[in-house]
């Protein structure tokens, strides 16, 4: 399978999972559940649109990566942007829409005769996401340098006249 075909399929998959699904699924959820979730202080619509936006940008970046040579700076920039998007996705997911919470989410609900407050501490997974994305940035740069070296080597071999 060529790089372009692979990029198109991968972009389509990303689009379906991160854009189509989050935008379609809420239509299947009864309205009262939405109201119940919004009462907890979680803005579900904002969360869904953030995921869909991330999915859309990630799809475009995947396409760009598939259609430009691996040695171009556009490829490097698209790859680094994909890494940044992955980090943002993790921050948004583990913070239920508010990335500034960095994995610490408080959900408050009214119960008969009182209040129920739930604090989720998922900071470990945010730290691991930072680590994984940091490693991915290193990987991307090393891959780019290797591709440039290979290209330079191939160029020298092609320009050397046969003996």
């Amino acid at each position: 399978m060529s790089r372009r075909t692979s990029a198109v399929l991968s972009a389509l998959f990303t689009l379906v999972i991160f854009v189509g699904l989050p935008l379609y699924a809420p239509s299947q959820i009864p309205e009262e559940y939405f109201e119940m979730i919004s009462e907890t202080g979680v803005d579900l619509n904002a969360f869904i649109y953030q995921i869909a936006t991330i999915g859309l940008i990630a799809s475009v970046l995947t396409l760009v990566k598939g259609f430009v040579p691996m040695t171009s700076y556009i490829y490097l920039l698209a790859s680094l942007s994909s890494n940044a998007m992955m980090l943002y996705f993790n921050l948004v997911t583990f913070s239920v829409g508010d990335f500034a919470k960095f994995g610490q989410v408080t959900v408050t609900t009214d119960i008969p005769g009182g209040v129920n407050t739930m604090l989720l501490d998922m900071r470990l997974f945010i730290q691991l996401a930072f680590l994984a994305v940091g490693l991915q940035v290193i990987y991307t740069v090393l891959e780019f340098i290797n591709a440039r070296k290979e290209e330079a080597k191939a160029g020298i071999e092609a320009s050397t006249p046969p003996k």
């Binding site: 119960i111 008969p112 005769g113 009182g114 209040v115 129920n116 407050t117 739930m118 604090l119 989720l120 501490d121 998922m122 470990l124 997974f125």
Partner: peptide
């Protein structure tokens, strides 16, 4: 007056956790 019941759970070597606090009016309790 009110009664507060807190359940605090830590797992994965105390790195991940959840704290649930229920606050009820004593009249309801």
């Amino acid at each position: 007056a009110s009664v507060e019941v807190t359940i605090s759970l830590r797992t994965l070597y105390d790195l991940v956790g959840i704290t649930n606090t229920i606050k009820l009016e004593v009249g309801e309790t």
